[in-house]
């Protein structure tokens, strides 16, 4: 996830390519367990990323872009638009600068998507759930159910496209995909309802009575904490509030955590064999965070290297330090043993 943050900081294509391959390597060596539906998510996310990249470039070609350029590649016939659509240009000159800019931009988004996919394939959303505090558990379940939605959707689409073939309709192409959309959503909905029933029947969401005093303290702490967090962030972001921003933010976070901890008393849940949060886990999460931090730092110091110019057109160079930072992201591939139990 931290890799994703890093990706937003740069548009240098070489760095981005490096980032993607780093995540791909970690996934390839540590894919959680073959066969689980989430493990296939990485490929799907990679395809999505590619699509995003292409769409971005196509739009740049068709609609033109505000980047001024001198190297005209082709000139498409410009479609005259009514005056209310001023500012939108259809067709016209396609410059190399605009193309490159669009490709960089698209690549950045694609890298972000790939990183999300990697996180999905490595951790498995259910594993994430185990690390949540008790009070947040129910919200967590909702999120996880939503996350597992995507892989199941993909499986459904595959099954229904096979069924389309059996009906003698072409199973390829956009039309085919669109027509299975509705049944796929229906199926997903039905599955969610069935899952909810199963969870209910197995005691999900049982509560125990807690004294009213504790309940009220919980509410006060959580609300107060959240307010503190908001105020603190505001203080940090506005220039003049720098002095009180940090302490307020810390106090807010503390109060919110205490509130969550107290709130956890309401739920009688216990945890079966929780994942031990050890040195390795710190290394894994740390490596991602460090990459993000280093790249942010680099972008602040040396914006030129991370955002290669497109006007005038220059070949992007590979800045040494950020590249080394990204290589840190490979760390999990080596420190974590093959048995995939790393809670990244």
């Amino acid at each position: 996830m931290s890799l994703g943050t890093a990706a937003t900081r740069t548009t240098n294509p070489l760095l981005l390519a490096l980032l993607i391959s780093a995540s791909a390597y970690v996934v390839a060596t540590h894919r959680s367990t073959t066969g689980a539906p989430t493990a296939h998510a990485y490929t799907a996310f990679a395809k999505l990323a590619l699509a995003v990249l292409l769409v971005r470039v196509v739009f740049a070609v068709a609609l033109g872009s505000p980047i001024p350029g001198t190297h005209t590649l082709v000139t498409l016939p410009e479609v005259p638009l009514p005056h209310w659509a001023q500012g939108i240009r259809l067709g016209g000159r396609v410059t190399a600068e605009a193309l490159v800019f669009a490709a960089y931009d698209g690549l950045r988004l694609a890298a972000l998507l790939v990183c999300v996919g990697a996180a999905n394939a490595l951790a498995g959303p259910t594993r994430l759930l185990k690390s949540l505090p008790g009070a947040l558990y129910e919200t967590g379940v909702a999120v996880v159910v939503a996350l597992t939605f995507a892989p199941h959707l993909i499986a459904d689409v595959r099954r229904l496209r096979a069924a389309r073939r059996l009906r003698g309709r072409p199973d390829r192409g956009l039309r085919g995909l669109l027509q299975v959309g509705l049944p796929v959503l229906e199926g997903a909905l039905e599955r969610s309802v069935a899952l909810a029933a199963a969870m209910e029947a197995r005691g999900y969401g049982r509560t125990v009575e807690v004294p009213a005093r504790i309940r009220r303290t919980t509410a006060a702490l959580t609300l107060g904490g959240l307010l503190g967090v908001c105020a603190g962030t505001y203080g940090l972001l506005t220039a003049e509030g720098g002095a009180y921003g940090v302490p307020l933010l810390l106090a807010g976070v503390g109060a919110a955590l205490a509130g969550l901890r107290l709130g956890g008393r309401r739920s009688p849940r216990t945890r079966y064999r929780p994942d031990p949060w050890d040195v390795r886990a710190w290394l894994v999460t740390g490596s991602g965070a460090v990459v993000a931090a280093l790249l942010s730092l680099a972008s602040a110091r040396d914006p030129e290297a991370l955002h290669p110019g497109v006007v005038p057109l220059v070949a992007p160079t590979l800045p040494l330090w950020p590249a080394a930072a990204i290589l840190l992201a490979l760390l999990p591939a080596f420190v974590v043993p093959k048995d995939p139990r790393e809670p990244s």
Binding site: T33, T126, Y204, T270
Partner: peptide, 16 residues
Amino acid sequence: VTDTVEEELAYGMESL
């Protein structure tokens, strides 16, 4: 609800 056999066996007890 979960995705491995062992966790699945434990899920109901965790809820209780």
